[in-house]
């Protein structure tokens, strides 16, 4: 119970397992690795964005422009391929665009000191507008088969891009959890003044967080183009909020300084799983957002209750020595009891 609370990742994992169990209970034929890899395939984009959002949120910032960055980068890879460049060059081009977009967000927030939410709200429109201007509002179609091949399964139902996502998650998780460089991200979000005073390059760290976020959005854009095979002009819109929701589900605090990449990964996976389960149950599509929102709120309320219960319990233990001298006397007030198993 305590372990569960200290470990938000574990509770997200349990939620995933529980939802999978519900799915299997209702239809045994879904009990397969294939179902999992199918969910993973549709979760890839959100996972990347959630990992990016983790870095930004750890430094106590927020980026709501990633949806547009995804669209811009998907367009970039499409335009480059259709004008005859090779696949590696096109992907590098998209990565560069993503890095620039993220860096620009960082510049606005760090150097020009615009609050992150306002700055990225501005670039949300700016990047979307830039994308429309670039293509003249037209969709990009007829992408080469070489790009689409990247999202064909190669092993255990996972595509090359799927493996790339896993590698990126692993690297990001290792970097943030194990290296001194990663620790700086936590420090900056936790107490900026203290981090500065202890010699952390706070501006560089925050700029890098935004830039990494942009690059991850670029990879997400490439995956989008590869999976769908064309790039509509509303590509990626609304993804930014989903990414933030996934992070919150996975235990990353909006106030900075806490959370892990694994949590974000699981949160993104869980959000996509809800959508997929609804599709498998053949519920009309308009239920999706409603139910996803409901589940999100449910998880957060439950989590909050559990946390309160734990805090009460800890408090009672801390002061357990101080019991009134006459137990059972009329004027004795009962300490609020810890609710057992709110779940």
């Amino acid at each position: 119970m305590k372990k569960l609370l200290r470990n938000r990742e574990l509770s997200a994992l349990l939620a995933i397992v529980a939802l999978f169990a519900v799915l299997v209970a209702l239809n045994h034929s879904y009990f397969s690795l294939q179902t999992l890899s199918m969910i993973f395939t549709s979760a890839q984009i959100l996972i990347l964005l959630a990992v990016g959002a983790t870095m930004v949120m750890l430094t106590r910032n927020i980026d709501v422009s990633v949806g547009s960055t995804v669209g811009l980068c998907a367009i970039a890879v499409g335009v480059a391929l259709n004008s005859g460049y090779g696949l590696p060059a096109a992907m590098l081009f998209a990565l560069l665009i993503g890095a620039i977009a993220g860096f620009f967000n960082g510049v606005l927030v760090v150097w020009l000191r615009i609050p992150a939410i306002v700055a990225t709200l501005g670039t949300l429109g700016l990047y979307r507008g830039g994308m429309l201007l670039w293509t003249g509002g037209k969709w990009i179609e007829g992408l080469p088969a070489s790009l689409k091949a990247l999202s064909e399964p190669v092993a255990i139902g996972v595509s090359p891009l799927g493996f790339l996502v896993l590698i990126v998650v692993a690297i990001a998780a290792w970097m943030l959890a194990r290296t001194a460089f990663g620790r700086d991200f936590y420090a900056v979000g936790d107490n900026l003044a203290a981090a500065r005073q202890l010699g952390v390059a706070v501006n560089r760290t925050r700029l890098l967080a935004f830039t990494f976020n942009g690059m991850l959005a670029a990879i997400a854009g490439i995956i989008f183009a590869s999976q769908i095979g064309f790039v509509p002009n509303q590509t990626g819109s609304g993804l930014e909020m989903k990414a933030i929701a996934a992070c919150v589900l996975g235990g990353i605090s909006l106030l900075g300084g806490t959370g892990t990449v694994i949590g974000a990964f699981l949160g993104a996976f869980f959000l996509t799983q809800i959508d997929t389960v609804l599709v498998l149950f053949k519920l009309p599509a308009w239920w999706n957002d409603f139910i996803a929102g409901l589940v999100l709120l449910g998880v957060l309320v439950l989590d909050g209750r559990l946390r309160q219960a734990l805090a009460r319990h800890q408090r009672a233990q801390k002061y357990s020595r101080f019991v009134p001298p006459l137990p059972g006397a009329k004027n004795v007030r009962q300490f609020p009891r810890k609710k057992k198993d709110v779940a």
């Binding site: 420090a187 936790d190 010699g199």
Partner: peptide, 13 residues
């Protein structure tokens, strides 16, 4: 750093 442990706070960097 309120969210880091005491050990991490002392040994930071």
């Amino acid at each position: 750093f309120p969210n880091l442990t005491v050990r991490e706070n002392i040994l930071f960097r």
